[in-house]
Amino acid sequence: MKFDATTIQMLRTGIWESFYMTALSSLFAYVIGLPLGVILVVADQDGIHPIPWLQKILGVIINLLRSVPFLILLFIALPLSKIVIGTRIGSPAIIIPLTIAAAPYVARVVESSFRELDAGVIEAAQSMGASTWQIIWKVLLPESKPSLLLGAALAVTTILSYSAMAGFTGGGGLGAIAINYGYYRYEPFLMWISVILLVVMVQVIQEVGTRLSKKGDKRIR
């Protein structure tokens, strides 16, 4: 196969599709997962606003969703894509299953960031009469920011690698190119190009996350 303008155009489209699938899914996953992570910590038995039954049920649901292999979830969730987006094939359709798979993952990543926070700082805020909301907005979130950014790099790279499976359901992106050309048509060259591009994307996301986290962290002198 030739490495011509058509190929380059295909790869550019692939990069763009991988990018927007990942970006939109990450966005939606955080819109859902971040509040869930907050609830997991705040509503915990020893949390600042204990609602143990809610916390437990949420924990079970999250574990349940996280234990379904993504490929299976992808097929299960496609009818939902049909309802929400109007199609069950192509790149946009995969955003729904990606979000469903990523949101519980994000919730756990966010939860672990919050749990790293020193309980004494929260106690100090309580001693000043802070309400639950004030503690969430003014202590939990800003104090966990560096850790949340590192967690985001982890979550987004994971979502990117999940998005590569879109190829199985007629979606696009670099993963689809790798599967279609490398796996179905035995053209390893294009497969490797796609894989290398994915590797580069992961490196960039991780590097940006790490740098933002370090730059914003005031604990470093």
Binding site: D118, V121, E123, S127, G129, A130, P142, G216, D217
Partner: peptide, 22 residues
């Protein structure tokens, strides 16, 4: 109680300052 706590300051062994605020 929260309002009352504003009339009672508290300091701690480990200071418990907000690390991300100056």
């Amino acid at each position: 109680r929260r309002a009352t706590r504003q009339s009672m300051g508290m300091i701690f062994q480990q200071f418990n300052l907000l690390a991300q605020r100056n």
